[in-house]
Computed example of a mutant assay.
Amino acid sequence: MCKREDLAALVASAAPLGPDQAAKRLGVRRVDFDHMVRLGWIRSPQSIEVRFGTSRAGAVDIALYTTASVDAVIPAHREVDWEQLRAVEKGRRSPLASLRPAPAPTPA
């Protein structure tokens, strides 16, 4: 396995990213990334439980996304003006907020 020339790329593409890290990788605000999740543009294949302190009551589940799936969002959605999206200032409404998820395909 270590002799694979593509090992670094393989490991990097499978590296898990939290939602904040994924938003940063895309160069967008976290709220914009949350809209991408709502729209079904990206899905979380796994989540982890993070505990705050020693109490179970302080535990939250954090969705994780693969680097490859995050990197695939932009090429898959060329209809988005990514430069404009990245330029939206903090506190302004996301252009993605008005979009609706694509309807689920009807069974044949």
Results as ranks from 00 to 15, higher is better:
residue 56 R to M: 12
residue 56 R to C: 09
residue 56 R to Q: 14
residue 57 A to W: 05
residue 57 A to T: 08
residue 57 A to P: 07
residue 58 G to A: 04
residue 58 G to P: 05
residue 59 A to F: 03
residue 59 A to G: 02
residue 60 V to C: 13
residue 60 V to K: 15
residue 61 D to N: 07
residue 61 D to W: 07
residue 61 D to R: 03
residue 62 I to L: 14
residue 62 I to F: 06
residue 62 I to Y: 04
residue 62 I to D: 05
residue 62 I to N: 02
residue 62 I to Q: 09
residue 62 I to R: 01
residue 63 A to F: 06
residue 63 A to D: 01
residue 63 A to K: 10
residue 63 A to W: 01
residue 63 A to H: 05
residue 64 L to K: 02
residue 64 L to V: 01
residue 65 Y to R: 13
residue 65 Y to T: 06
residue 65 Y to F: 15
residue 65 Y to D: 00
residue 65 Y to H: 13
residue 65 Y to C: 04
residue 67 T to R: 15
residue 67 T to F: 00
residue 67 T to W: 05
residue 68 A to Q: 08
residue 69 S to V: 11
residue 69 S to T: 11
residue 69 S to C: 13
residue 70 V to N: 05
residue 70 V to Y: 05
residue 71 D to V: 01
residue 71 D to S: 09
residue 72 A to I: 10
residue 72 A to T: 09
residue 72 A to Q: 11
residue 72 A to N: 10
residue 72 A to M: 12
residue 73 V to D: 02
residue 73 V to F: 06
residue 73 V to Y: 06
residue 73 V to I: 14
residue 74 I to H: 03
residue 74 I to D: 10
residue 74 I to C: 07
residue 75 P to N: 02
residue 75 P to T: 01
residue 75 P to A: 05
residue 75 P to G: 08
residue 75 P to D: 03
residue 76 A to E: 09
residue 76 A to W: 05
residue 78 R to S: 13
residue 78 R to Y: 06
residue 78 R to P: 10
residue 79 E to T: 01
residue 80 V to Q: 13
residue 81 D to G: 01
residue 81 D to Q: 03
residue 81 D to L: 00
residue 81 D to F: 00
residue 82 W to K: 00
residue 82 W to P: 04
residue 83 E to L: 08
residue 84 Q to S: 12
residue 84 Q to C: 11
residue 84 Q to L: 14
residue 84 Q to Y: 12
residue 85 L to P: 06
residue 85 L to H: 06
residue 85 L to M: 11
residue 86 R to Q: 15
residue 86 R to T: 04
residue 86 R to K: 15
residue 87 A to N: 11
residue 87 A to H: 10
residue 87 A to G: 12
residue 87 A to P: 09
residue 88 V to I: 15
residue 88 V to N: 03
residue 88 V to E: 05
residue 88 V to W: 03
residue 89 E to V: 11
residue 89 E to W: 09
residue 89 E to L: 14
residue 90 K to R: 13
residue 90 K to M: 14
residue 92 R to C: 08
residue 92 R to M: 09
residue 93 R to I: 10
residue 93 R to F: 09
residue 94 S to Y: 09
residue 94 S to F: 14
residue 94 S to T: 05
residue 95 P to K: 01
residue 95 P to F: 10
residue 95 P to T: 03
residue 95 P to M: 03
residue 96 L to H: 08
residue 97 A to C: 12
residue 97 A to E: 00
residue 97 A to V: 11
residue 98 S to Q: 14
residue 98 S to Y: 11
residue 98 S to L: 15
residue 98 S to C: 14
residue 99 L to H: 12
residue 99 L to S: 07
residue 99 L to K: 14
residue 99 L to R: 15
residue 99 L to P: 04
residue 99 L to Q: 11
residue 99 L to M: 14
residue 100 R to C: 05
residue 101 P to L: 02
residue 101 P to I: 03
residue 102 A to G: 10
residue 102 A to H: 08
residue 102 A to I: 09
residue 103 P to K: 12
residue 103 P to A: 07
residue 103 P to G: 03
residue 103 P to I: 02
residue 103 P to T: 06
